[in-house]
Amino acid sequence: MAGPVTAAAGTTVLDVVAGDRLLPVVVLDDVEAAPPLGAALKAGGLRTVEVTLRTRTAVAAIRALADHTDLVVGAGTVTTVDQVEQVIDAGARFVVCPGFSAAVVRRCQEHGVPVIPGVATPTEIQTALDAGLSVLKFFPAEQLGGLPMLKALAAPYPGLRFVPTGGITTANLRGYLDHPSVLAVGGTWMVAAGLLAAGRWDDVTTLTAAALAAAREGDR
C-alpha cells in the first residue's frame, strides 16, 4: 500500500500522478460508495483518483473522497468555469477536461490548481502551450490512432507530457508508458461501473494492484 501523499516535501499533485503512472477514471452514481472505493484503491497501491462529472452525485463523491481518504482526488469531465468552482470547493486537487477551454484553464490557474485539458490536434497543443501548460490529456487515445498518433503529435514538442485516456487497458498501457512523452495513463477498467454498483471492492483492489504492477514493470 502506498504511503501518505504528503510524505515527500515539495511533492506536487502532478508528481504524485507521475509516480503512480496510472490514473483511475471513475463514474460514481452513489456517494455512499466513495469511502469504500477510496479504501479499495489505496489497498491496491494507488494514491490518485479522477472522479468525472458525469453523474449528479459526482461533486458530493469528490467531497467524500477528499474528506475521508488520503488520496489525491481530482475532478474529470470539467467543461465550465462554474464546475471548476464547485469541484475545487469540494476538495478537488486537480482538474481534467475532455477538451481545451481557455476559460476553464484560466480559472484553474487563478486558483493554483493543476489542470489537464484534452487535446487531439497540433493546434490544440499549441493553444495549450500558449496558456502555459506542460501536461495534457490525449483523448480519446485509441480512437484517435493510439500510440502511433501520440508519437507523431509529441515529436515536435520535446518536454511536453501527456496522459493518454480512452481505450487504455492492462494489455496496452505498457506501450504508452514506455514512450518518454507519457506521464501516466488514465483508465476505467479497475473501476468499471459494474464493479462499483455491486460493491466488489476486493476486485477493485485486485485489478488496481495488477494494473499498477503492469504500469511499473518497465520502470524498475
Rank of each mutant, 00 (worst) to 15 (best):
R107V: 01
L173S: 08
Q86I: 05
L173V: 09
E85M: 07
P117E: 07
A75K: 10
V119F: 13
A152C: 09
V105C: 13
N172D: 05
L173K: 01
T165R: 09
T170M: 03
L71A: 00
F100D: 02
G159D: 09
S101A: 14
P117I: 08
M149S: 10
A61N: 08
Q143D: 11
A120K: 09
R174M: 08
T52K: 02
G112L: 00
G187V: 01
I125H: 10
I116E: 00
C97A: 15
A75F: 05
S101F: 08
M190L: 15
L177M: 11
C108N: 02
A75P: 04
L153C: 00
V81A: 09
V95S: 02
G166Y: 04
A75G: 06
G132M: 10
R106M: 06
G146P: 01
T127H: 14
D70N: 15
L136I: 08
A102I: 12
R161G: 00
V191P: 00
G74V: 02
V72I: 14
V81D: 06
P164R: 02
M149P: 00
S181I: 11
K151V: 00
L147Y: 10
S134Y: 07
A154R: 04
F94Q: 02
P117S: 00
T52N: 01
V72D: 08
P140E: 10
V78A: 06
V96S: 02
V163I: 15
T77Y: 09
A61H: 04
